[in-house]
Amino acid sequence: MSTEAHAAQGATGYIIHHLTSLSVGEGFWRLNLDTLFFSVVLGAIFVWFFKRAADKATSGVPGLVQNFAELLIEFVDGQVKDTFHGKSQLIAPLALTIFCWVFLFNFMDLFPVDILPGIAGLMGVEYLRVVPSTDLNATFAMSISVFCLIIFYSIKVKGPIGFAKELMFQPFGPWLTPFNLLLKLVEEIAKPISLALRLFGNLYAGELIFILIALLPWYIQPLLSFPWAIFHILIITLQAFIFMVLTIVYLSMAHEDH
């Protein structure tokens, strides 16, 4: 299981060990190396796979790789076209990136909880958290990026004055401007926070349950981890899908003039 120092502390130590990041630096400048490493590797896998499909892309009979890539492209494009009615070069690729990246993040959750930390432990790495989406930094990085895009497009489409008007005069008209402003600010800020926390919460809880199952006697573990893993296949896809769809929805809201 985990390193002996933590095994001595019992179940609590085991859980804490699993949920501690491998990090360097102090204070704000701490870097979670495991999160960075896995998200870059998973991003590279995503890019490599799609680049391969894109290089061989043909309008004739598609190969297996292209077929799968096109399946995802059509799926994402369908989602974007359903919600977003403007024209944008960014939104569809953004949605595809989010869906695939988040899915791959979450997919790391399906590796048995001790395998990768165990291997890392053998190589002398003490802590390893393999699921990037159980790190708030990873989920907030995406949601804050999306938030910046929301602000950017709101100002770009509506103009700075139009956007300010929307913040101040909606939904209750100019007589309640301070109240409107408060409401709107909360609404806008809730977007990235809810995006990030929803994904983080789901995956963190899921991972925690896997860890708890791993604490049980070995003959009970399969009975619990097997159904939970199958259920998790749904969860990880669903969470990636939700993150993508909400991004599309928020960005299309930013494009709409009320």
């Binding site: 979670n32 960075l36 890019v47 990085a141």
Partner: peptide
């Protein structure tokens, strides 16, 4: 807690989106 990882993740994310937009989609 939130730390500088956030910035690294944002840069990675931006690069991925840019690459997807430019070479994949």
């Amino acid at each position: 807690s939130i730390n500088a990882t956030l910035i690294g993740q944002m840069i990675t994310f931006a690069l991925l989106v840019w690459f997807t937009m430019k070479y994949i989609w």
